[in-house]
Design a protein around this nucleic acid. Structure first.
Lengths: 252, 252
DNA sequence: GAAGAAATGTGAGCAGCGCTCTTGATTTTC
DNA sequence: GAAAATCAAGAGCGCTGCTCACATTTCTTC
């Protein structure tokens, strides 16, 4: 049905509207990812089963291999998907804050990260927990999308520098020469092209990020045992991390 | 061999010397744990298989269930084992530092944690990574031994308070009333019986611990991608965490 | 439109897994 | 020595990832 198109059959398939085979394929691939995400959310990555996904889709178990190379490849797709979802959530929250409200931007970033992690614990575990079963993430496909949220952090640090609201590194126990040796070479990376960061500020940013991610990890995996008011504890940790990269009033 | 003991056969088994059955059992249980630890170290928790352990021990696959209730129970034993190993490593390093060298104690603690984690990445993942396959750690058996290293942190914070070398919480962005609300109730816990901590200091200790654990997690799971000099970066992060709980000279 | 090529669905099958149960042998207890 | 507990061994169930041969359907090319 619905063959009402300028009948330029054969030859090119200009990716505009496709044959029923191609259409079916992208639909099935989307279905697989959708069902897999549902299974991931309810059961976790470790018990994700290709057979179960196929069963849910009403196809025979071997059929799914026409669309997915292997279980690991499905996991990779889920990782990319989760990174995208996380980056979008964080970016949306971040962009809703006025650019000159540096502290507010970091706070929004942190809260968005925490909220997303608590809402999608298994996705979070996939991204920031222990690497899955003898599965090494293929860097080409994950690092690029995985750096989206870190890019926000970098932009924030850069803006803090421009605004002269960078905290004194000595207050954070950061030694300039040490920091240079540790992260200096990282500044040559493509990610930092065009920025004007110095090693010390990058070190401060990494420290803040490490503390923030540690706080979220700790809560999602409940590493501290039962915490009476975990939201309040997060506020404390977030405030501490904030102090590492931006101070409330211009210094010096 | 070596039956040279007062031969009070039969009747009681006073746990001193046992029948051949009991002796065999504890030997086999130790073997199982040993082989399982080897598998864990080389392959990770997710691909740990009871059948493979049994095979390595030359026993038939079903035989291992005489000694281990289930796969989850084996994992629990490994967790307890790993906690013990970690606690011992950290404690040893910590106790080698003069008690009044507060910064040195924290540094030793941090370095020992990092070294242990890098040497036993899969064990570390078991303790501080994402929870294993639909497996919820039985709190009774793990929390007790899991708090050993945190106990060191608490003692350190306590000593810093006594020595009057506690940093100003405001420098770390910690608000007193917020901190009280967040962690105050935790002080009623049995772990803090006998200590004289206030909520703010506890919050500072937790912040430092979160940063330290985040730094180690980040490195072991390589969450930051390739880092040129990860050891130097750890020094920076460790120094930052140290500033959160102890300052170099007595204040006020 | 017919014919060949490519993509897709189906079912059987292999090896591995956790775990249970039965059967027969060994050790401990009485 | 008899009864009870312990253990080794094997068969078996249902699940997993993955492969292969085969039939069917769609796409491409003449």
């Amino acid at each position: 049905m619905d063959t009402s198109r300028r009948g330029d059959e054969a030859s090119e398939t200009p990716a505009a509207d496709l044959g029923k085979r191609a259409r079916h394929r992208i639909a099935v691939e989307a279905d697989i990812l959708r069902v897999a995400r549902r299974h991931l959310a309810s059961e976790g990555a470790a018990s994700l089963s290709l057979r179960a996904v196929a069963r849910d889709l009403g196809m025979v178990s071997s059929g799914i291999y026409r669309y997915v190379e292997s279980r690991d490849e499905l996991l990779t797709r889920l990782i990319v998907d989760s990174y995208t979802s996380l980056a979008e959530a964080v970016r949306t929250a971040h962009d809703a804050v006025p650019p000159d409200d540096l502290g507010g931007r970091w706070s929004a970033l942190g809260h968005a990260l925490r909220t997303w992690a608590l809402e999608h614990p298994h996705d979070f575990a996939l991204l920031y927990g222990s690497p899955v079963p003898d599965y090494e993430a293929p860097a080409e496909r994950t690092t690029e999308v995985g750096t989206a949220v870190v890019a926000l952090l970098i932009a924030l640090v850069e803006d803090a520098r421009v605004a002269g609201r960078v905290p004194d590194p000595a207050d954070a126990g950061i030694d300039a020469s040490r920091a240079s040796a540790a992260v200096g070479p990282m500044l040559d990376d493509a990610m930092f092209a065009g920025t004007d960061l110095d090693p010390v500020m990058l070190a401060q940013g990494i420290t803040a990020w490490t503390l923030l991610l540690g706080a979220v990890t700790s809560e999602v995996f409940s590493q501290l045992g039962p915490v009476p008011d975990s939201a309040a504890l997060f506020e404390v940790l977030l405030a501490a991390s904030s102090r590492l990269i931006v101070i409330s009033s211009p210094a010096r």
